[in-house]
Every structure is written in structure tokens, then in C-alpha cells.
Design a protein around this nucleic acid. Structure first.
Lengths: 347, 347
DNA sequence: AGGAGTTCCGTAAACGTTTGCGGTAGATTT
DNA sequence: AAATCTACCGCAAACGTTTACGGAACTCCT
């Protein structure tokens, strides 16, 4: 804390060259002779020189830093995205500033302002309660990428695709789910939404479309706003009254909590009722019974985000919005309404 | 991307004052008249001025930024610490750069160097595979705080306490666990370690001490290095042979996976065997059966970390190492060896 | 009326980099 | 021997802040 950190001038003095030469030598500028480069590098090494990125950012007018805002890293699905994002960013020499928005407008605004103050090279936002316009306004002119947002073209539209959104292919996922449900002989299906705003609607709509496309009756949808404080308890009660054959949930977290509530109500899964989740978080594969869900490579999504941002830097504008591939993974919570699950190894 | 961002100069020109005045006005310096302050603030507002923290950091020789290195945010327990850390940091006007070390020495070194390059105001490190000395060396002179490390005084020592470590009170936790186990009539107990290095030893030692203090036989300890790729499968097989009454696990994640493996082997929990975890991650309370575990407020731990770091800034040296309070929460996996669990509401 | 205080603001240096431009020395050509 | 070229390197400006210091204008006292 007290001693000064070693700077370029220290290295320069020790090497009897100018700071310019040191800077160039360390960056491998061919203008500097190989001999000098080596010598400078060695001296920088023994002096334990660490470049000051804030100074560098200042002159370069851009910091090798990305901002990443999530509702809450505690959620496994967010954690995976964050991990992938940070990992890929590090590979490309970028740091990432993390901020939790907690689905609170004021907190999110503060977080985005913080990113702007840091002059980040780009920002990825997931599950914001703010409008995309406001987010862009706060961050401008840094490129922003929306993870799991809805400005993604429907299969019909082709021209003038929206840009800067990345989300799992809910439509495909729900199609797979419904096909599976039909094959297993389920009749009535219910849907229970999670807590995140616009996000869940997309997924819900994907389910109702999938059902409709196959001539199936509409699902009854239950809405749970507050997952953590017993919001699913009332949903469980509703479901107990309705008694659908299977309930598909907004995400695995919702599904897992719901399973607990349903068990508390005396139901046994999957004998009395089937459950399907979405995301395939790690705990989905070790729950009891193991959860059938649609798997998305969230870490890949995170990694892809920084590639998106990097491409923006190179090409000047954000790439087109994209869907990430998903895949249904059938486990133990959807054996078919009449079949009794058999104990055994994992799927 | 293309347009320039508004700086102090822009505001100064518009307000017909000097940049110094603008700077002071925005920071509420009493040297500037109230009238001028108001006017400057308004102009800064309409111009949407956002201060450039990299420039500020450069002149202040310290960036309002903390570094936080975790093995992997995907782990819920780490996610909670990160969340608490970031939240408290934001409250204090600090940003946090997140980096995953993945328990890989080279990756961790890169991450720490990155922190040093950012001239962070402090760093919190959890679950590193590097030695504390090396971490300090890489980061010097920034203060470093070790989360879950072992330089914590044993209850005997009092003088010259080590500094800069924060971890849950494993000893107290394991005492509570063992008391509970005895009360419930468990006889033989096994321990299975997780994957994190020095960390798990502390917890294991806490368990064996707790057992020894109460005149109980030593636990047989199983070691699982690789949680994700079936490392617990062989442990489950071992346990099947040993058939202890109860197995206490390094953490909830280990416990939950082990439960799954044990079920796959045909055991039913808790009738055939009891399980206790550590951490009380969210999924511990909704597993089937619900996991009894010792709860630590990981988010509080994270928050406390930034207070630690802040205190270091003010007082010049790191505060003494501390234990965080923990509390046993009894749920359904330890009803006693003979009792059959009854269905019902959560504990 | 002149000096001392007070209040308010501007000047300029500094933080550690990067990089365009110019310069020097030696080598090569005329 | 003068001129051109090449290879290497230094000078200095710039990035956007903060803050010590000085200075102008005004008030108040004697």
C-alpha cells in the first residue's frame, strides 16, 4: 500500500532507454531491435513490472473490460453464463465487471452507469427489468448485448433481422417437449411461469404454440411471481385442484421447487404427476426423481456473448440475433402417466 | 462507438467555468458556491455526463474496484459469496472484477495479474490452489483477503493472531453436527471430502475433533477428487460396503450428489443411511428428502469481505482473521437410524 | 482609504500509458 | 565524398481527471 508500484519510467531508467522504447518493446513492436526487446523484457521481469491498464485505457479510449449484468449470480443458470462469459473474455484478454441487478430498476440503472463510467468495451445484459431502449441509452455508445431477451425474429420474418439478442431456442425446445409428452401419452398439461418478466412469456408462448400446432388443448398457466418466499405454494395448491397430467415449468429452479411443494402436498412424482423443467442445471440430474428438462449449454451461451461483442468491435455493428441450440433430455419425471418408474442408473 | 463521450471540458465550456470548478462542483466541494454547483450539476445532467473512472483512478492512484477470484461461480455457494460481495461493494461505490480460477494454477496466476494490472483497491480470494505467499506476492501492495483459508487461529492461541482470513466456523458447525448425531442415536459415521484442497481438511479435522472430544470412534473418511465426473460413484460403492449409520459430507453439493449415487445403488435415504451436508445451499432445502446441513450465511460472508477490505484501507493493515457463525439446520436426512421419516411440511 | 479576511474560482501539474513524428547513426549507393 | 536509405530510438502530446496553489473580487474593520 505504501510503496510505489513500478512503472514504465522505472524500467526505462534501468534499461537506459526511453519509456516509448519500453512500451514498444513490451508490445513486441518490430521497430525495436530484438536485442533491446529482450533486454527490456528481462528488466521488466526482474522489476516485476505490471502494466497499468487504467493508464492504458485512458489513452486508448477503451478499456479491455466487459460489463456483465445478471439478476443474481446465485441462480445456477446465471452462474453458468457468467462463468462461460468470463472464461472466454479472459481468453481474449478482457476483464469482466460483474453486477447484480436483482430485478430492481434503480439497482440496474446504477450498475449500467457504473459500466459506462468504466468505459467498458461492451456489455451483456441478462434478464433486465429495464427496456432495451433505456439500457442502450445509459450505455451508449458501448455495444450492448441482450441475453434471453425477446427481440429475436419469429421464423416468418427474414429481412432486417433484429440485432444484439441471444437466447435459447425456446420454440424448438418446447416442440421437443410436447412431442415427448404426446409420445408418453400425457393428456392435460399445465405451465407454471417463473419470476422473470418478458423472458417467461416467450417460453410460455412457445409451449402454447407447440401444443396448438399439434392440435392439443391449451395449457392452463399458473403464475408464480416470488419463487423464494412460497410463491409456488399457492401454485401447488392450484395444481392439486386441477390435476393436470404433467406440468412444464419455466425453468429447472421453478420445477425443483414445485416438486418439493407437490411432495409436501402428498403427491408422488412422477406417479401422480409429471414434471418437466428447462435449462438442465446441474441439480436437475441429481434430483429425486431426476428431472427431465431441456438442456441448453449456458456456458456456451456466455462464451458466445463475448464473441458477439468482439465481432461488434471489428465489424462496427452487432451481429444478428441468434437462438442457441437446445436438446430435450428425458429423465425420470416423465415416464408416462401410468408407468411406474423403475430404480436404476442415470439416464 | 463513433461519437465522442462527453467529458469535463464539455461541461465546463457549456457552464463557462473551468474544469476544476466542474470537478469540484460535482463532488460537492464547499469551495464552490451553491449556485454554481447547482448550475454545473444541471448542465452535466442535460449533457448526460458520466465521469471517466479510469482517468480518476489514474490520478487518484487507486481504482474503486475490487478483484474477486473464485474457483467457479457455478457452484451455488460461491455464487452466494459473490453476490454478497458485489452487493456490498456497490453500496460502497466499488465495482468488482470477477475471475474464475478453476483450481488451476496458471489460470489463477493470470487472474491475479489481471487484478494487479487494474490496480484494484483490494482482492478477495477463495479456494485458491496457490500459496498465500504467492498470492500476496502477485498482488502486492494491494491488500488480499483469503476466504475459506486456513490461517485462522485455533481456539488455544490468542496473541499475534493471523490476519486476512475469513471462513465459516467449521469447528462449531461440526460440534453441532456431532451433538445432533449422538442425540439421534447414530453410531458409526463416515466422512466424504469434496474437491477443494486445504479447505476440506479443516472441515474434516473439525469433524474428527468433535467426535474425539465426545469419546466417539474416528470416522472413516472417503476422498472424492472429481465431483463432476463420477468421482462419487466409487465413494458410494465404498460406503455401500462399509455401511456407516450416517455420512457427513464436505458440502451440500457433495451430499446431494452422493445421495443420488446412493439411491442409484438401491439405498433409500434416510431409512438406510443418514446424510448431512454443509453450507445450506438453496437446493438443500428442496431436495428429496430435504438435507440436514449446517447453514452459513454465505452472502453475509461476501459482504463482510468488503468491509474487511475497506477496514484495511482505513486502518492500514488487515483485521484479524475471523470465523463466521454457522447453525445446524435439521431436516429430513437425519431422523435417527430407526425412525421412518413422516411426510409433511418443511422444517 | 488601506489593509486584512473571506469567498469563490482558474492555472497548471500530475497520474502512466501509447504513438505520430522527427532525428541520429551507420550502411549503402552514386 | 556526398547523397540516399535503413534501422533504431527519443520527444512530446494526448487521454480525462483531481487538487495544491495562487489570484481576483468583495466585505468588513480600523
Amino acid at each position: 500500500m505504501t510503496q510505489r508500484r513500478v512503472t514504465l519510467v522505472d524500467v526505462a531508467q534501468r534499461a537506459s532507454v526511453s519509456v516509448a522504447t519500453v512500451s514498444r518493446a513490451l508490445s513486441g513492436d518490430p521497430q525495436i531491435s530484438a536485442a533491446t526487446q529482450l533486454r527490456v523484457r528481462q528488466i521488466a521481469d526482474v522489476l516485476k513490472y505490471v502494466p497499468n491498464v487504467t493508464a492504458r485505457s485512458l489513452v486508448l479510449q477503451s478499456s479491455a473490460t466487459f460489463g456483465l449484468m445478471t439478476p443474481d449470480v446465485t441462480d445456477p443458470i446465471h452462474g453458468q453464463v457468467v462463468t462461460g462469459f468470463q472464461q472466454r473474455a479472459a481468453e481474449q484478454g478482457y476483464s469482466v465487471i460483474l453486477s447484480n441487478g436483482f430485478r430492481n430498476a434503480a439497482t440496474e440503472q446504477r450498475a449500467l452507469r457504473e459500466f459506462a463510467a468504466h468505459r467498458v468495451a461492451g456489455v451483456a445484459v441478462m434478464g433486465s427489468v429495464l427496456s432495451q431502449a433505456e439500457v442502450k441509452r445509459l450505455l451508449s455508445p458501448s455495444p450492448v448485448l441482450f441475453i434471453g431477451s425477446d427481440h429475436v425474429p419469429s421464423p416468418g420474418a427474414d429481412l432486417d433481422l433484429p440485432r444484439g439478442c441471444l437466447r435459447p431456442d425456446d420454440r424448438d425446445g418446447m416442440n421437443q417437449v410436447v412431442d415427448h409428452l404426446i409420445e408418453r401419452g400425457y393428456g392435460t398439461v399445465a405451465y407454471v411461469s417463473g419470476s422473470s418478466g418478458a423472458n417467461q412469456m416467450i417460453r410460455r408462448d412457445a409451449l402454447v404454440s407447440a401444443l396448438a400446432d399439434r392440435g392439443r388443448p391449451e395449457p392452463v398457466v399458473h403464475r408464480a411471481d416470488d419463487l423464494d418466499s412460497g410463491g409456488l405454494q399457492v401454485v401447488a395448491a392450484e395444481i392439486l385442484r386441477g390435476r393436470p397430467d404433467v406440468v412444464v415449468c419455466y425453468d429447472d429452479k421453478t420445477a425443483l421447487i414445485l416438486m418439493d411443494e407437490l411432495r409436501a402436498e402428498g403427491l408422488t412424482i412422477p406417479v401422480d404427476i409429471g414434471i418437466v423443467g428447462f435449462d438442465d442445471i446441474p441439480f436437475a440430474s441429481i434430483s429425486n426423481p431426476r428431472l427431465t428438462t431441456v438442456s441448453q449449454r449456458s456456458d456456451e451461451l456466455g462464451r458466445h456473448c463475448v464473441d458477439f461483442l468482439l465481432a461488434t468491435r471489428d465489424r462496427g455493428k452487432l451481429p444478428r440475433s441468434q437462438h442457441m441450440a437446445v436438446a430435450l433430455v428425458v429423465r425420470e419425471t416423465t415416464p408416462g402417466p401410468s408407468r411406474i418408474p423403475k430404480k436404476g442408473k442415470r439416464s
